[in-house]
Design a protein around this nucleic acid. Structure first.
Lengths: 105, 105
DNA sequence: TATATCTATCGTATATTTACGATTAACGAT
DNA sequence: ATCGTTAATCGTAAATATACGATAGATATA
């Protein structure tokens, strides 16, 4: 028990659920908004804008990177985090497709 | 430590994250699709369509009900689960708004 | 080379989620 | 009244998530 059964569902639903999971913490939603506003920015800047420690922010960034909603490239000492437009676009359209499928509106 | 800091974020982001959390398991995504296909159905029907036990499915239904994406009304012995179109519509539009804000597309 | 800065990772604690079987409560039918 | 059915809840176990401080590694700069 407590072994996840997620793998027994269909690929696309697993992927959708995974993207939703990445969005399931307000800190991560705020990080996306921050990155949009600043276009590109480093971890330290983000830490200053959130009520969380550096290590916690780093973990949230990792989660967003894991599903591909952001990228993080090393630039000397700093790491430049950016919105990944292509993947966000895909997420947007797939989530929209789900809602259209499921909701009469 | 490990005390959640979610409450320190803004109301709308907390709500968005909460909706995303409800969508963050493929079983719950599939449940939404099942309810759409059947328009209304009881817990037992859903259990038969998922690789999960009755009690686990009941928990997933509870989570979807918690954020208002579905309704569940007692009808004699059975419970009739339904898509909540109004709330799904709201979720759809708010999530769409987020993506439009965050993604250049 | 030494030092300061930046960020990922480690170790840790606690909370939450996922999953199950068993039980309970409510109802219908016999 | 008893029995079968349905679904929520309880108890439990394991996995995952959230959060922090401390540390390590990498790189600028003095």
């Amino acid at each position: 028990m407590a072994f996840s059964k997620k793998e027994e569902f269909n690929r696309n639903d697993i992927w959708l659920a995974d993207v939703a999971k990445a969005l399931s913490h307000p800190a991560r939603i705020k990080i996306l908004k921050i990155l949009t506003g600043m276009n590109a920015c480093m971890c330290g800047d983000i830490v200053e804008l959130l009520p969380l420690s550096q290590s916690t922010v780093s973990q949230h960034l990792k989660e967003l990177k894991r599903v591909g909603l952001i990228t993080g490239e090393i630039e000397g000492l700093k790491v430049c985090y950016c919105i990944n437009n292509a993947n966000l676009q895909k997420a947007k359209s797939e989530i929209n497709k789900l809602f259209n499928q499921v909701c009469k509106c």
